[in-house]
């Protein structure tokens, strides 16, 4: 039963990470191409709504995290009890990358409020928001709920 909950969670997170990652990578590529061709880059509606930046590498990493979750789903579905390990590591990766961007946002806030850096004029908290942060928050909540239940017993 517990594994069923975790499998469902991993399925949702895996798909979300993979989809957002694809959007992030594709927008990253289209932005790079626009810059190379000297044309104006048009922001995509989905990317804009979900605070997805145009960032190829970060997008590939989101796809990787999604793959870890989905690999876990496939193992659990196949009856491999250790598949739960992929859900656990998927959450940890999600927390690590969420943490990285929270710290990066802290750096930007220091630039705005402490150093009054002109480069950041008009910058708001929403400008620092990106999928790694809000997806990481979801993982944090889940981790706090399930942290003691990630074990694979002898069975």
């Amino acid at each position: 039963m517990i594994n069923k909950d975790k499998m469902l969670f991993a399925l949702i997170m895996g798909c979300a990470y993979a989809l957002i990652g694809v959007v992030q990578t594709v927008t990253g590529i289209s932005k790079a191409l626009s810059e190379a061709c000297g044309t104006v880059y048009q922001e995509h509606l989905i990317a804009d709504t979900l605070f997805i930046p145009a960032d190829i590498i970060a997008g590939l990493i989101l796809i990787l995290i999604g793959s870890v979750f989905l690999y876990g789903v496939s193992e659990i579905r196949a009856g491999v009890r250790e598949g739960i390990a992929y859900v656990y590591v998927g959450i940890i990766l999600s927390l690590i990358f969420g943490g990285i961007y929270v710290l990066a946002a802290t750096g930007e806030l220091l630039e705005i409020h402490l150093l009054k850096n002109a480069e950041y004029t008009g910058w708001t908290l929403l400008d620092t928001l990106r999928p790694e942060i809000y997806m990481g928050m979801l993982s944090l909540l889940t981790y706090l709920k399930w942290k003691d239940s990630f074990e694979v017993g002898e069975g």
Binding site: V68, E82, A85, Y88, L93, F97, F150, V152
Partner: peptide, 24 residues
């Protein structure tokens, strides 16, 4: 039983995912 350390190892040393996770 698999400890959390064993679980992490299972994923981080995975044949396909190990190197991409390291690079990430």
């Amino acid at each position: 039983r698999l400890t959390k350390s064993d679980m992490i190892d299972r994923v981080l040393t995975n044949k396909y995912l190990g190197i991409p996770i390291f690079l990430a």
